[in-house]
Design a binder for these strands. Sequence first.
RNA 1: GGCCCGUUCGUCUAGUGGUUAGGACUCCAGGUUUUCAUCCUGGCAACAGGAGUUCGAUUCUCCUACGGGCUACCA
Length: 469
Amino acid sequence: MSHSSVSVRFAPSPTGELHLGGARTALFNWLFAKNQGGQFFLRIEDTDLVRSKDEYTDQILAALKWLGLKWDEPLVYQSKRFDDYKVHITNLLGTGQVYRCFCSKDDLQSARDEGHYQYPGTCRNLTDEGVKQRLNQGIGFTYRIRIPDGETHYEDLIYGPITVNHGEVDDFIVVRSDGSPTYNFTAVIDDHDMNITHVIRGEDHISNTPKQILLYQALGFDVPTFAHLPMILGHDKKRLSKRHGAPGVQSFQDEGYLPESLNNYLALLGWNPGTEEEILSMDELVQKFNLVQVQKKGAVWDEKKLHWVSGQHMMQANTDFILESIRRINPNWGKGSDISYLISIIEMLKQRAKSLTEFIAQSHYFFHAPESYDTAGLKRGWPDKNVNNRVEDIQSVLNEISIWRKENIEKALKVYAAAHELGMGKIIMPIRLAVSGGLTGPNVFEILDHLGKEDTINRIETALNVLPS
RNA sequence: GGCCCGUUCGUCUAGUGGUUAGGACUCCAGGUUUUCAUCCUGGCAACAGGAGUUCGAUUCUCCUACGGGCUACCA
């Protein structure tokens, strides 16, 4: 039934939550698939029974959902495919492309410690008799692939032609002594069984690729196309990790970033649309994405730029969507207020908040009278006792307003300012301080309008009682 | 140790055998905004080094340096 020619997969290992590098790999796979009208699959690489945890799988899936990277069914778990792998081992053993290795872990390790980095080939040419003997003695064994002479060449969609001499490729282990298959082996079989056409993954897999190609050939499978993505780096230019304090994707959600912001920034890390546009919606990313524009060089993670990108998306974001997103990280936000009130607050503030958490912080005074006043703001806006007299005047001016709308408020205060030959700043700063506790925020007349007359008058009253402090 | 990959402003990047090497983030200085954010203007700031090819190299080739990755019975 599948008419699409392109199939890709993201294959995380559930040994930790989804990190930024994984998210970027997932995103690029997804974008490529969508751009090509292909399919995007997910495979959980849980062959490491010791380190894999279900809770990590759950976290990874949740993070991908949040990012909006929907995957096609079925979802593949490698741990459920051990029987499939076994069949291939039997065949490969039959043709001699795989052989049993009876070397112990310790022996191999000590050889490495002495500077012999490659497998010495101890068991490569054991006679049938020799094998039988060892089996009878009950010696544990692994399966290794027999790498033929020659060299392997492939064309990386991002890095170009890559050639490796087989002298550099070890007879690596494909099945451990406990019978479990290793990564390079399972990845090849799964990618084949899942009909993966393009393997898009991190650059750290470049040197695995020849090994896998050799495996494809031994198994008689078609070799897919490979594309390796450059790493995401920390400020020390080393691969980004927890050591850099790099958080999992989940925490970006908690910090109030919109998923499209993270996706947009992640896309810009190692890719560009070929134009000077930087703020792109998911649809635009899908439309413009291609592997040709992907960079070879690793890219340093820059939280500041993410923050800027986030601010751009906040400005453009749909108001209802922002409300929904805020409620997701803070279900109590604006509880008890009319939706229309909340909507108007969002429209006022989304221009100046760069994340949802900033937004929540900046919206506080729309729901609660200030409990304290910004110190630096007081210095400028309410420096001494003289201000109180003026504020009392203003309070009564406001009190006279019968139809409480921002135009009327503005007009009344301007009249007052003109009559007393005062700059508007002298009037607005103390009022802003009184109602919001600080000197930043949207148009002050609009704030008063939203707060309502009673609240405004009360907050000014409170300020008159406690200020200057 | 070996192999593979990479190298343009601090960071993300554009770019061409001849360009004042462009943009974005950050930072700084102005302007607009009665505040803040936005917005506008301006500024700082890069082709790792050395050979070679060439009339001419940031661009092509080689070497060096530096950085990264892999070299596991991890993925």
